[in-house]
Simulated scan of single mutants.
Amino acid sequence: MQTLAWQKSTYSGDGSNCVYVAATPAGTIHLHESDAPNVVLSTTQDRLGTLIRHLKGTAEPSSTPDQPDGHQPECRS
Rank of each mutant, 00 (worst) to 15 (best):
N17F: 08
T3V: 13
G49F: 11
D69V: 00
K8F: 01
N38E: 14
K56C: 09
K8T: 02
V39F: 12
C18Q: 06
C18D: 05
L51V: 14
P37M: 03
T50C: 12
A26S: 03
P37W: 07
D46W: 14
T24C: 02
S42K: 11
L4W: 07
A36R: 10
E33W: 01
D46S: 15
S9W: 07
R47S: 15
E60Y: 09
Q2G: 11
A26G: 02
C18G: 03
P25M: 10
H71Q: 13
H71A: 12
G15L: 01
N17E: 10
R76Y: 11
N38D: 14
C18S: 05
W6Q: 04
T50G: 13
H54N: 15
L31Y: 01
T3H: 14
E74D: 08
G13S: 02
T58H: 09
A59G: 06
A22G: 05
R53F: 10
T43A: 15
S63F: 04
Y20P: 00
M1W: 13
H32Q: 05
P61F: 01
S34T: 12
D66H: 05
Q7R: 09
T3G: 13
G70F: 04
H32P: 00
C75Y: 10
V21T: 04
C75E: 09
G15Q: 03
T44M: 06
L41G: 04
A22S: 05
G15D: 05
V39E: 13
E74R: 09
N17V: 06
